[in-house]
Design a protein around this nucleic acid. Structure first.
Length: 465
RNA sequence: GGCGCGGUACCCAAGCGGCUAAGGGAGAGGUCUGCAAAACCUCGAUUCGUCGGUUCGAGUCCGACCCGCGCCUCCA
């Protein structure tokens, strides 16, 4: 059984997709005005693990992630740079896809862009006007919260209790109610706009997701993800619009990922603790897989405190898994198998699936993996593990990696002749008990990224980079 | 002010009424080794923010309090 904590109900509930065996998933994507930061990627990695786990459980997942390529920030950015909006956003869209690959985040099935779905949004806005859920004001169209009885059900916000900020108050004169939000914004001088039957202008942010999710997933779908900060107002507004327009439930399960903070503080450019993936990988030589491990190793509903110490610990945990695979791969095991291994793997798999199935309890899932590693390592130590066991165990680890995606793809094992000769030279030196030369050669190989290990079955090596 | 999250060993982090409080990292000692690496073994919280309460029994439920953080405005 799989259960998720549904923000809408405020509790864990068994997950049952609308259509058996199929999951329709929508996740809020980037606004492409800048490079995505590690906080963004925390959410995307969480969503990736969710998707991979659903697939692991044999669900067929249709995943849609929107790309917001028109909003205040992208418009401002393009203007500042003096380039057309599309040129400006193209750079960041490209960077975004590059980053996804670096973190081994599987591509969505659809990446609809706001600018390419204006007619879909206009249709809904027109419908909301027709049905009386929206009204026009000074060339813009607003959604009337007063006519949406369920408003607040996701965020548990009581509108009467809301603190009115200066910004909201200042807008009040042009709306019927301070909390009404724009579906369609009137054109402004020097800003891009689209002509449509509801007049010239550009879409509000919220309508984008309502229109594009419905287009690719239908008016009601299974799971909608995003960061906690999106609960209000973004997702609340999506629900209001979509349910008003379609007259049926919008989303069954809402999953929200908590924030990432850095050294105990909110990440902010002004604090100097703001990191993009590119910073870390290029300027700090961070292993993207260690970052991915760190991002996924804290439960998605808990605040993740990013520190470089935590990153090192993630790297160490990862090294333990990789070293284990290396052991399985590089030892000369006797042919055959022992029955014990099959049990160990079955137990680990069960525990892994149970953990992940319980609202993605990643800690339990990782424990299952590490306990298995420990038990098999003992068998190796006792020289009980056989060749078939080793093969099966390695295959098992790789199967879990279908969900975790933290192991490198199979690495090139051939090494340059020059290094090969050094390894042999060192072996000769060791035979002659010339340890000084042997250690010197080891250091040289280490500098070249090769770690040598002397075993009773001879020398072996790991490629570190 | 409203809504919400969290405080478990040096660090990260499970456990949410009952076996000796998972797992990872770091640390100490040991086995193996020319040395090292990896692996293995041993050690490490009488204790789960504080104070009360419920219970035969509580990190685990209830109440109060203290501390940290997030959202309420574009934001993953």
């Amino acid at each position: 059984m799989i259960q998720f904590f549904n923000t809408l109900s405020g509790q864990k509930e068994p997950f049952t997709p609308i259509e058996p065996g199929k999951v329709k998933l929508y996740t809020c994507g980037p606004t492409v005005y800048d490079h995505a930061h590690i906080g963004n990627f925390r959410a995307y990695v969480f969503e990736d693990v969710l998707k991979r786990f659903l697939r692991f459980q044999d669900f067929q997942v249709t995943h849609v992630m929107n790309i917001t390529d028109v909003d205040d920030k992208t418009i401002r950015g393009a203007k500042t740079k003096g380039v057309p909006l599309a040129d400006y956003t193209a750079e960041y869209i490209g960077a975004f896809f590059d980053d996804l690959k670096v973190l081994r985040i599987e591509p969505a099935d659809h990446y609809p862009r706001a600018t390419e779905h204006i007619p879909d949004m206009v249709r809904i806005i027109q419908g909301l006007l027709d049905k009386g859920f929206a009204y026009r004001k000074d060339g813009a169209v607003y959604f009337s919260i007063a006519r949406s009885p369920g408003y607040g059900k996701l965020s548990k916000i009581d509108l009467a209790e809301l603190r009115t900020t200066e910004r909201v108050e200042s807008d009040e004169y042009e709306k019927e109610s301070a909390r009404d939000f724009a579906l369609w914004k009137a054109p402004k001088e020097g800003e891009p706009f689209w002509d449509s039957e509801i007049g010239p202008g550009r879409p509000g942010w919220h309508i984008e997701c309502s229109a594009m999710s419905a287009k690719y997933l239908g008016p009601t779908f299974d799971i909608h993800c995003g960061g906690v900060d999106n609960i209000f107002p973004h997702h609340e507004n999506e629900i209001a619009q979509s349910e008003a327009y379609w007259g049926r439930p919008f989303v069954n399960t809402w999953l929200h990922c908590h924030h990432l903070i850095v050294d105990g503080e909110k990440m902010a450019k002004s604090k100097g603790n703001f990191f993009t993936l590119r910073d870390l990988v290029k300027n700090r030589q961070v292993d993207p897989m260690a970052l991915r491990y760190l991002l996924l190793s804290t439960h998605y509903r808990k605040v993740l405190n990013f520190t470089f110490e935590a990153l090192e610990q993630a790297q160490a945990a990862l090294r333990r898994i990789r070293d284990f695979l290396y052991e399985l791969d590089s030892r000369p095991f006797q042919a055959g198998e022992v029955p014990e291994v099959r049990n160990i793997l079955t137990e680990a798999r069960t525990k892994f699936v149970e953990g992940m199935g319980d609202d993605l309890n990643i800690s339990l899932a990782l424990t299952a993996l590490f306990e298995m590693i420990k038990r098999v390592n003992v068998l190796i130590r006792e020289e009980k593990l056989r060749a078939d066991d080793a093969r099966e165990t390695a295959a098992f680890v790789h199967s879990l990696d279908l969900v975790l995606a933290v192991l490198l793809p199979q690495r090139e094992t051939t090494i340059p002749d020059e290094l090969m000769r050094k390894i042999q030279a060192r072996e000769l030196a060791r035979k002659d008990r010339n340890f000084k030369l042997a250690d010197q050669l080891r250091r040289e190989l280490d500098d070249a990224g090769l770690v040598l290990e002397d075993t009773k079955d001879g020398v072996r090596w790991k490629v570190l980079r």
